[in-house]
Design a protein around this nucleic acid. Structure first.
Lengths: 346, 346
DNA sequence: CACCTGAATGAGATCGGTATCACATCTGGT
DNA sequence: ACCAGATGTGATACCGATCTCATTCAGGTG
């Protein structure tokens, strides 16, 4: 049928020639605008189908100014949290005839800047970003100020006026720690990371606040610095629980740290929840896989992607309403990893 | 500084005007080809920097025929196996100044076809695909025949002549089942799926072959049909182990099924490995998280992405050597989930 | 019957960058 | 002094699709 040299694609010129009309008329027939004769329109569409014509998106994009593509810069695509969101965004965008480019910043702001530049140069329609750092976001600020479609997810940052979707980290952490306190715990350890990721800062803030609200001291000996990897969390947990007067409960700031803590506690021969109670931030597969299952603060992962896409599409189609800042509540899922402290043990 | 209206980007025309040279000269200076005077070159690059000029990739792509983008169609981006590969590909492509578009087929061939079309229309430089089905791959075949840069990963399919990277599924499965046999097991169950994914078929083939090689019968009662989800695997496992003469060992064809099997066995009060020995195909986080840890057939995940990128870049830069078909060996990682059958128990 | 309106079409500009070609200038060798 | 070749620069075509503008022709109106 369609006689095609291997390398050359069918252009609108070919269709026009095959239909004995001009390029302009062919374009009108194929895109259905302006005046086109019925017979001609039919002929053109048939020829297009016969030749296997597919419009060249690049040329269209040049004319119209942009590619039908949205960029997504998550903190780390291998993190199930972001993988899930990426998947949701991808599916929804596709249903709106757009594509998604994913480029992971690997929690590195320098890389984030580079990615931003490189994606921006592709003339995408907009960007969805989970900023790697709470500070130094002038690159985002500039984009937002220019009115470029930008949606921030998971991590709100100050001074950047754009649509933002985040989670109430402070309150979630507060609730988790408070739950431990209500169960009689007084020495509550925390594995946190010293990075500039704002979610971690907010969660640590919630931990501190919960302690002070109950009149408990914020003891530096109970706070172990880690990074957001399983291995670092293992080390930090071991450090924390090798102390003479060790915590009776532990709060971990994300799922990787929770995993690390579990592995470390097991290697130290400490049982959850008999020896140590545990609450983690962010729900994850493993949490229901252990025995007992882990009590966690869960985030509404499934709502973030869809809302991000909705906000993005509104921006793209010219909505210039003031930026929306949505903050989802978290939910404490009580499972079996917290034991009630007896009075005597305090 | 750079006086920019919000919507209009800096073009090479602006740079040329600011430098008092023609567009052609500006282009030469910025891309470093042809003859350009030293002083002029300096002036142009400085003006470009001052104005914040970023080349328009879309225009470049139109001229040169393609976008500096590779497409990737995995079976399921939420599967850690593919997430890992996607990440590797992304990092390597970026170091070669390319971007990656990921579009998950969700193991659905129809969707795969649609994605292929939609990505193809974007004039990408090439596609990396994990075909959803072993059959009906005329869409891939056509692309390969045209000489379009195409690399198939994880799943080799017959009749498509292009670079392919896969894993020796049959041999891996054979080795796993053989290991169970050597440990005295005779009634070895398998959870398989009836889908058209070729890896599953090959692994099931290895299971069958290992049994026949040892003179053991292939008993349909020992084979439970599932799908590649945790929930389906749970059901299949329960069915399998509710029979009167239940298996003493179980082989699962992928990590999701292994997870499901573990959950099901626990819910039935069966202990691994005392009551049932278990070997799974594909290593995964959970496997080292359980007690005892699970013996698995591991695939060289970390090698697939890099090799795929290498092959792709060779194709893009015009290499027209005959298609390479690389098949990686698997490795049996012996951990604690297989018990030796005593003679008496047979 | 001149004039207008709407339908149908083609010619050509345009998007931003790149590549070819032509023109000018300069150098050095004979 | 003259020409070949190297060097620097601008004009212009081109990639493929779209859109504006001009043109043509049919039919209706005063």
């Amino acid at each position: 049928m369609a006689e095609r040299t291997p390398t050359r694609a069918v252009t609108i010129k070919d269709v026009a020639a095959a239909s004995n009309v001009s390029r302009a008329t062919a374009a009108r027939a194929l895109n259905g605008y302006g005046y086109v004769g019925e017979a001609v329109a039919l002929r053109v569409t048939q020829e297009a189908a016969r030749l296997g014509y597919r419009g060249n998106r690049v040329a269209q994009a040049l004319r119209q100014g942009q590619m039908p593509i949205i960029g997504f810069i998550p903190g780390d695509i291998q993190n199930p949290f972001f993988a899930r969101i990426a998947h949701d965004i991808d599916v929804l965008l596709r249903s709106r005839r757009h594509n998604l480019i994913i480029a992971s910043s690997e929690e590195n702001q320098k890389q984030e800047r580079e990615l931003l530049d490189s994606l921006f140069a592709l003339n995408l329609r907009g960007l969805i970003v989970a900023p790697a750092s709470a500070e130094g976001n002038d690159h985002l600020q500039r984009l937002a100020a220019e009115g470029y479609p930008l949606v921030l997810i998971d991590r709100a940052v100050p001074d950047v006026a754009c649509d933002t979707i985040s989670v109430d980290n402070a309150r979630g952490a507060h609730e988790a720690v408070n739950y431990l306190i209500r169960n009689g715990h007084r020495r509550i350890g925390v594995i946190h990371d010293d990075s500039r990721i704002i979610t971690a800062q907010e969660r640590l803030g919630g931990y501190r606040q919960a302690l002070s609200d109950s009149g408990l001291p914020v003891d530096p000996h109970l706070m172990a610095v880690s990074q957001s990897t399983v291995q670092h969390a293992i080390d930090a947990t071991i450090r924390l629980f090798s102390q003479p007067d060790r915590p009776t409960a532990l709060f971990t700031l994300d799922s990787l740290m929770t995993t690390g803590a579990l592995l470390a506690l097991r290697s130290m021969g400490l049982c959850v929840p008999q020896d140590v109670s545990l609450v983690g931030f962010d729900d994850f597969d493993l949490a229901t896989f252990t025995d007992p299952q882990i009590t966690v603060v869960s985030q509404p992962v499934g709502q973030i992607g869809p809302l991000a896409v909705q906000m993005m599409m509104e921006r793209i189609s010219g909505g210039d309403s003031p930026p929306r800042q949505v903050r989802f509540p978290t939910r404490l899922i009580v499972r079996g990893s917290v034991a009630r402290m007896s009075q005597s043990a305090r």
